[in-house]
Simulated assay, not measured.
Amino acid sequence: MEFTDRVSRVEPSATLAISQLASELEAEGADVIDLSVGEPDFPTPENVVSAGKESMDAGDTGYTSSNGISDLREAIATKLRGDGLEYGPENVIVTPGAKQALYETFQTLVQDGDEVVLLDPAWVSYEAMAKLAGGTLSRVDLSAHEFRLEPALDELAETVTDDTELLVVNSPSNPSGAVYSDDALDGVRDLAVEHDITVISDEIYERITYGEEPTPLATLEGMGERTVTVNGFSKAYSMTGWRLGYLAAPEALIDEAGKLHSHSVSCATNFVQHAGCEALENTEDAVEEMVEAFESRRDLLVDLLADHGIDVRAPEGAFYMMVPVSETPSASDASGGEPRADDQSWCEGAIQDAHAATVPGSAFGTPGYARFSYANSEERIREAVDRLAEEGYL
Rank of each mutant, 00 (worst) to 15 (best):
G59A: 05
P250V: 13
D255N: 14
S55N: 05
G317N: 07
L35E: 01
V49I: 13
A22F: 08
A14E: 02
V7T: 14
V228S: 00
A248E: 06
R298W: 00
V124M: 11
Y180Q: 09
Q20K: 03
H355G: 03
R189A: 14
R6C: 09
A14V: 12
E278K: 07
E28A: 15
T4Y: 06
D353K: 02
L153A: 12
E288G: 09
Y374W: 09
Q352G: 02
D5Y: 07
V48I: 04
G135F: 10
L25M: 13
G392D: 14
D186Y: 10
S296D: 12
I69V: 14
A14I: 11
G224T: 08
S362Y: 01
R189G: 00
L142W: 06
G258W: 12
G241Y: 10
Y246K: 04
I93C: 04
R313A: 10
P121D: 03
E28Q: 14
F294G: 15
T198D: 14
Q20S: 11
I33A: 07
E289N: 07
G135R: 09
A306W: 03
E251A: 00
L244C: 05
D342K: 15
H195F: 01
E278Y: 10
T229I: 01
I208D: 09
T198G: 07
P367N: 11
R189V: 03
H355W: 06
R340F: 04
S143Y: 01
D196K: 01
I93F: 05
G392Y: 05
I76K: 11
S13G: 12
A384T: 05
V117Y: 05
D196H: 11
Q352D: 02
E86T: 06
L280A: 09
N67K: 03
S171Y: 12
D5G: 10
E316Q: 05
A14K: 11
L305V: 00
E74I: 15
D186V: 12
V49G: 06
G88F: 13
E221C: 00
A157H: 04
F364A: 01
A98D: 15
L80A: 11
V116D: 09
H145M: 04
D83M: 13
V385T: 08
V49P: 00
V323L: 04
W123Y: 06
Y237K: 06
F3V: 15
E316C: 05
E203V: 08
I33V: 08
A218F: 03
A314T: 06
D120Q: 12
G59H: 11
A334G: 08
A236Q: 09
A17G: 09
G222I: 12
G276D: 09
D353M: 07
V94L: 14
C267L: 10
P360L: 05
D343N: 03
T219H: 02
L149Y: 07
F233N: 15
F271L: 12
D112S: 05
G349N: 13
Q107G: 10
I310F: 05
T95N: 08
D57K: 12
D342L: 09
M239L: 04
L109K: 10
A77E: 02
E251Y: 03
V94Q: 08
E391C: 00
A384E: 04
G84R: 11
Y126E: 05
E165G: 06
I351L: 08
Y126L: 03
T44D: 06
D333I: 01
E90D: 15
L16W: 07
T215I: 08
S262W: 01
E281V: 13
L280Y: 03
M129V: 01
C347H: 00
